[in-house]
Amino acid sequence: MDENHLLINLKDIHFSYPGGREVLKGLSFSLGQGEKVGLMGPNGSGKTTLFHLIMGLLKPQHGKIEIFGQPVEEEKDFVEVRRKVGLLFQDPDDQLFSPTVLEDVAFGPLNQGKSVEEAKEIARETLKALGLSGFEQRVTYRLSGGEKRLVSLATVLAMQPKVLLLDEPTTGLDQETTERIIEILKGLKLAYVFISHNMDFMLQATDKIYGLLEGRLALEEEMVPHTHVHVHGYGRLSHTHTTSDDFRPGIERDK
């Protein structure tokens, strides 16, 4: 893709935490329009760090960051970046600080200079789009884990970003909520990058997957879809494999 049309372009990024080892060693990464990218890597490999560098929450010791074709270095450059790039944090409790759901979702639009009425309207629309109508007056810290995650996503989407960075959006969620999030992501006309350890989820919601190893990115090109021995939730209750029912030694069929 033409370099000028890249949404995010990182070149030769080096980063280490104060007094720590070097986490990123010459990492380069680019994201084009509409790309849906997955990011994998062992714990502590620098995935979250990478996101925080893009948002300007951390500053690299070396390297170049370009967002929407513009080089960004100073804090004021990043203020602009944060209007267009939305980051979903790992822990929804970090993201939801307002008392009510409506207030939290409206917080971003208000900071973007929208009027109170406009912000409320955007918040309501966003909640509706995520199937969260009726949640407006709920108290944020009393929501369930899955609800918190969905509301966090709403707070980010309400800012109408052009790119989404999702930090383990499905970790700790049940099957149903995970699927709901996959559906929402697949329906978005946005470019996004997300971190996950869930391979099935990755394959469903991304076009390509990068691995972050030893401070650099590598494209996981050899992706071969194949099946595994697996277990369904709730045991035999929900088992209705129509094609392979005869082929399950040791398990009796419920009739």
């Binding site: 944090f89 600080f97 980010v156």
Partner: peptide, 18 residues
């Protein structure tokens, strides 16, 4: 982390009443 999340959403030190 909360501070960072707020900065990401454009927080400039002002809260709004709905």
């Amino acid at each position: 982390r909360v501070r960072k999340a707020m900065i990401c959403r454009g927080f400039k030190g002002r809260f709004y009443n709905l």
